[in-house]
Computed example of a mutant assay.
Amino acid sequence: MTVVDFFNVSPNKKYVLNISVVLDNNTSYPIHATRIFIPADQILFPDKNGKATGNFDFNLTIE
């Protein structure tokens, strides 16, 4: 399981989480993307753009 913190997010808005692999030579390859929705009750600082935490499970095989 991976825990991701999101900062400066707006409530009730859709976002795209992109995952990339960065190799030793600093080459970056996108390997996964998923849409997420952050409801207002998950925002830690609701009076303005705040922070939310998401838990994700990924099964990725990198060869």
Rank of each mutant, 00 (worst) to 15 (best):
T2L: 03
T2F: 07
V3Y: 10
D5N: 00
D5L: 00
F6Q: 08
F7T: 07
F7W: 01
N8M: 03
V9E: 04
V9N: 05
S10Q: 08
N12W: 09
N12T: 05
K13L: 03
K14M: 04
K14C: 08
L17G: 07
N18T: 11
N18A: 09
I19A: 02
I19E: 05
I19P: 01
S20C: 08
V21Q: 11
N25Y: 01
N26P: 08
T27A: 14
T27N: 12
S28C: 06
P30A: 15
P30C: 09
H32I: 10
T34C: 06
I36N: 07
F37V: 00
P39F: 09
P39H: 10
P39A: 07
Q42K: 08
L44D: 15
L44M: 15
L44T: 09
F45D: 12
F45P: 00
F45G: 01
F45T: 15
P46C: 12
P46G: 08
D47W: 02
D47E: 11
N49H: 07
K51I: 13
K51C: 04
K51F: 06
T53M: 00
N55V: 09
F56Q: 02
F56E: 02
F58K: 02
F58C: 03
F58L: 08
N59V: 07
N59H: 08
T61N: 04
I62R: 09
E63W: 03
E63P: 11
